[in-house]
Design a protein around this nucleic acid. Sequence first.
DNA 1: GCCATTTTTGACAACCATTTTCGTTTTCGT
DNA 2: ACGAAAACGAAAATGGTTGTCAAAAATGGC
Lengths: 130, 130
Amino acid sequence: MSTRREAVRQALTDASGFRSAQDLYADLRSEGSKIGLTTVYRALQALSDSGEVDVLRTDDGEAVYRACDTESHHHHLVCRTCSTAVEIKGPTVEEWATEIGAEHGFTGVTHTVEVFGTCADCSLRAVQQT
Amino acid sequence: MSTRREAVRQALTDASGFRSAQDLYADLRSEGSKIGLTTVYRALQALSDSGEVDVLRTDDGEAVYRACDTESHHHHLVCRTCSTAVEIKGPTVEEWATEIGAEHGFTGVTHTVEVFGTCADCSLRAVQQT
DNA sequence: GCCATTTTTGACAACCATTTTCGTTTTCGT
DNA sequence: ACGAAAACGAAAATGGTTGTCAAAAATGGC
């Protein structure tokens, strides 16, 4: 594990939500790092290949990453304002997806599930019109 | 509704699965249409804005579209080989998502759910090693 | 410690889906 | 048929992401 890759992982861990490669690059540069954008992309690709970070796509096609607490299968509850994410586990959706697939004769069923909302803090802030 | 937009909608309807803008452009051109790529994008944007087609992002960030039977909220069971999609309805996931959001104090909860697998036909074809 | 080999890095160019621009064509109301 | 407004399409611009390649850093044998 190279120093640069570790730096990217740390930057991702420090931010407790989903961040894009460009975001992380900006974060690292503003901390004084001399890292290059290419390296950030390479580090993120390696980390996601090894399952150490989760990736998903925003509606406008940008890839965003998150360092997760667990490497096992899980989903996220993401705040659409501050992008903070809570990890969600539980058999309900998994069972539902498997069942739906089986009903239609599909094999090798997988699923992508993300839940979005406005977190308690951001909801409050919005109401207060700060 | 312009003729061009109708042509795009028809092309999407003919394909019973998710297709990218580039795919649809190729389909239409190969049918002899003189439509431009720009118009395909514009038509898809308009159709998705009006809720007549569903959009989702592939893992590599490309936007894919589908003409759906219903305009109400639903999900898809998509074949990862032939991209055919079955529409899924049912309260299970909706309830689950709302509940999860509420548990963590999130408001305005929405969700994205897609289920992938290999459909019965494609599974069979794979086994037969055609 | 020192040199050769391998790996990692980063500036820059290349890619490619998508959007914007803008002049032309078509549509539509009268 | 006439003029305004909308739709169209070719080409250029955009922007996130990936490929290239030479320089820099880590590694291993001596």
